[in-house]
Simulated scan of single mutants.
Amino acid sequence: MQITVRVKPGSRRGPLVEDGPDGLLVHVRERAADGAANAGVVRALAEHFGVPARDVEIVRGHTARIKRVEVGE
Rank of each mutant, 00 (worst) to 15 (best):
M1V: 04
Q2V: 08
Q2M: 12
T4E: 13
T4A: 10
V5I: 15
V5M: 10
V5Q: 09
R6V: 14
R6E: 15
K8F: 08
P9K: 13
P9I: 14
G10V: 12
G10D: 11
S11F: 05
R12T: 11
R12G: 15
R12M: 09
G14L: 12
G14A: 12
G14D: 13
L16T: 12
L16M: 15
V17F: 08
V17Y: 13
E18I: 14
E18K: 14
D19W: 08
G20F: 11
P21G: 04
D22G: 02
G23F: 06
L24Q: 13
L25T: 13
L25V: 15
V26D: 05
V26I: 07
V26W: 07
H27N: 13
R29D: 01
R29A: 12
R29I: 08
E30I: 03
E30Q: 14
E30Y: 03
R31N: 06
R31C: 01
R31Q: 11
A32Q: 08
A33C: 02
A33Q: 10
A33L: 08
A33N: 03
D34E: 06
G35T: 08
G35Q: 07
A37Y: 00
A37F: 00
N38I: 00
N38K: 04
N38L: 07
N38R: 09
A39F: 00
A39E: 06
G40W: 01
G40K: 00
G40M: 02
V41L: 12
V42Y: 00
R43V: 10
R43N: 08
A44P: 04
L45Y: 02
L45V: 04
L45M: 05
L45C: 07
A46D: 05
E47T: 09
H48W: 11
F49E: 12
G50A: 09
G50D: 06
G50W: 02
V51E: 06
V51A: 05
V51L: 04
V51T: 05
V51R: 06
P52W: 04
P52I: 10
A53Y: 03
A53W: 03
R54I: 00
D55Y: 08
D55S: 15
V56Y: 05
V56L: 09
V56N: 05
V56K: 06
V56H: 04
V56Q: 07
E57A: 15
I58C: 09
V59L: 14
V59H: 02
V59Y: 01
R60K: 14
R60H: 14
G61W: 06
G61Y: 06
G61Q: 10
G61L: 12
H62D: 10
H62T: 09
A64Q: 13
A64G: 01
I66W: 01
K67S: 09
K67F: 02
R68E: 15
E70R: 13
E70T: 01
E70M: 10
G72R: 14
